[in-house]
Design a protein around this nucleic acid. Structure first.
Length: 494
RNA sequence: CGCGGGGUGGAGCAGUCUGGUCAGCUCGGAUGGCUCAUAACCAUCAGGUCGUAGGUUCAAAUCCUACCCCCGCAACCA
């Protein structure tokens, strides 16, 4: 019996609205999940939200409501996005879930041997009631921009987690591939980073400085800081420690994360797992960022792209297509509306949509829609599957489009419309025509199969149209031309 | 000498580990063909000293050395 599969995504902090980066997490995990399911595997797919911390408490206070109530309102934004992307997740965890809280407290106690009291010292802003990083303090020249007050050097008591104790084992796991980091250059980057060992992290705060969080068991004055709380979600959502079936899924097969949080997921998180005597995840998929026209998205620039805008105007599959193929799975990518629309019109519309249309059209016109027995597509799918295994989804899609092109070339070569003219004159024409079109359908169905993980609706439509042996007509064309951001070549001249 | 990634035709990229079969792919542009199709499709062309300068070799985008430039990261902003 093969192990049941498990894939996770990073849980976003609900203080804020979802953006394209979150969407990418869900999309990549969903593609993988659908691919594995298509191959008969059972997959559990986690998503969730991170809901504790001062920023949430502050926002809630601003709105005059309880933090939990605020989180209740905010987490829905993310749930809506996941559903909009049609992410086929099986589990949704909120760090304010009762089970999660209980499990994290259990984890805290189990990690006792690696926890010790310490003093955290850093730059603190009275106005923010929070520490800032040394870098932030330096960048702002020692003055908080929000409150226009100088930072103060303060120290506070808290608990530390001895991640340093696990440096060697973690390094070895990464080097030997027990815990694989893809792409390779991220692995190198991280190994370099921990050359001098992992540094212990502070995992709690005095209650007076952090009210909204999970209480530290046995110490009423301390509240847990983000690390143990948030990272633990990957196992608590499975039911760890009390619900038995978590063991069927852990260790995770793939954990999808952005490049910015690699260090926590490759350092602190494995240390936690080792402390709990659990296996490390098999693979960390580290994706990059999405720039817009070469510029980093930021709130201050206001150049962020809203996934909803894309989906609402072009359809979900168009969204999934672009971000799966034109954003390299394992590296930074670039989005512009022009690029997006060009890919939509040319690749989805001209190449694929049109191929489906012309084949369906010929079948209907020449053979009253009867397909007969479509042969198995015979394209070699080695490269496709290889790319899927290597988590290079963009390359897998490249391979599919190679097939779409060669299908169009095939049609052009055999010219079914000319064979059709011979029907009635040439004794073999009818059989030949039917054979040619059936072959085309076979290729199309194979393409449909390969698109299942990426474009579920499109794949379904291909199958629905051709699978039964008779063309089932559907309303409208797939991927009709849209010119919102690029000039319409056929528009009458102004 | 902090670490990492990268500089290939107008744009975006592949190829570099395992030197020759590499100068390739997509978009955009030009010309032609075709008419089944979403004015789609197919073919051909457009010529880029593969960042710069040396070196190794019968042979380098691919290996070595130096240099220039761009972009990330440098502990909590996907």
């Amino acid at each position: 019996m093969e192990k049941k599969l498990y894939i996770t995504t990073a849980i976003p902090y609900v203080n804020g609205t979802p953006h394209i980066g979150h969407a990418l997490d869900y999309l990549l995990a969903d593609i993988w999940t659908r691919y594995q399911k298509q191959n008969g595997r059972e997959v559990r797919f986690q998503v969730g939200t991170d809901e504790h911390g001062n920023k949430i408490a502050a926002k809630a206070a601003e709105a005059g409501i309880e933090p939990k109530l605020y989180a209740d309102k905010m987490y829905v934004n993310f749930e809506v996005l996941m559903q909009k992307i049609n992410a086929s997740y099986t589990d949704f965890v909120r760090t304010t879930d009762e089970h999660h809280i209980g499990a994290v407290q259990y984890i805290w106690q189990k990690l006792q041997p690696y926890l010790y009291r310490g003093t955290y010292e850093g730059w603190y802003c009275i106005g923010c009631e929070a520490f800032v990083t040394d870098k932030e303090a330096t960048d702002n020249n020692g003055v908080c921009p929000d409150h226009n007050q100088p930072y103060q050097r303060l120290s506070e008591d808290n608990y530390y987690f001895k991640t340093s104790a696990f440096t060697d084992r973690i390094r070895e796991a990464i080097e030997t591939g027990t815990m694989q980091i893809v792409p390779e250059f991220r692995k190198k980057e991280f190994l370099e980073l921990i050359k001098d060992g992992l540094q212990d992290v502070s995992v709690s705060r005095p209650r007076k400085n952090l009210s909204w969080g999970i209480p530290v068991p046995g110490d009423p004055d301390q509240v847990m800081y983000v690390w143990l709380d948030a990272l633990a979600n990957y196992i608590t959502v499975l039911g760890y420690p009390d619900r038995a079936d978590w063991q069927e899924y852990w260790p995770a097969d793939v954990q999808v994360i952005g490049k910015d949080i690699l260090r926590f997921h490759a350092g602190i998180w494995p240390a936690m797992l080792l402390g709990l005597e659990l296996d490390l995840p098999k693979k960390l998929l580290v994706h990059g960022f999405i720039n817009v026209g070469g510029v980093k998205q930021s709130k201050t620039l206001g150049n962020g792209v809203n996934p909803t805008d894309v989906i609402d105007n072009y359809g979900l599959d168009a969204f999934r297509y672009f971000f799966a193929r034109h954003i390299p799975t394992l590296d930074d990518g670039d989005f512009t509306w022009e690029k997006f629309e060009t890919a939509y019109n040319t690749e989805l519309g001209n190449d694929l949509g049109n191929a489906i249309q012309r084949i369906a059209g010929m079948l209907t016109r020449y053979q009253a829609g009867v397909i007969g027995q479509a042969p198995q597509g015979e394209h070699d799918m080695g490269t496709y599957h290889e790319s899927m295994e290597k988590l290079e989804f963009n390359k897998a899609l490249d391979e599919v489009w190679l097939m779409v092109r060669s299908l169009n070339q095939y049609i052009e070569n055999v010219k079914p419309w000319e064979i059709a003219k011979l029907v009635g004159k040439d004794a073999e024409a009818e059989a030949h025509l039917s054979e040619v079109l059936a072959y085309a359908v076979g290729a199309l169905l194979q393409i449909g199969d390969l698109l299942v993980p990426f474009l579920p609706a499109t794949a379904a439509r291909i199958h629905q149209t051709f699978e039964s042996g008779v063309v089932v007509p559907s309303e409208g064309v797939l991927f009709p031309k849209i010119y919102l951001h690029t000039p319409d070549p056929h528009a009458p001249k102004a």
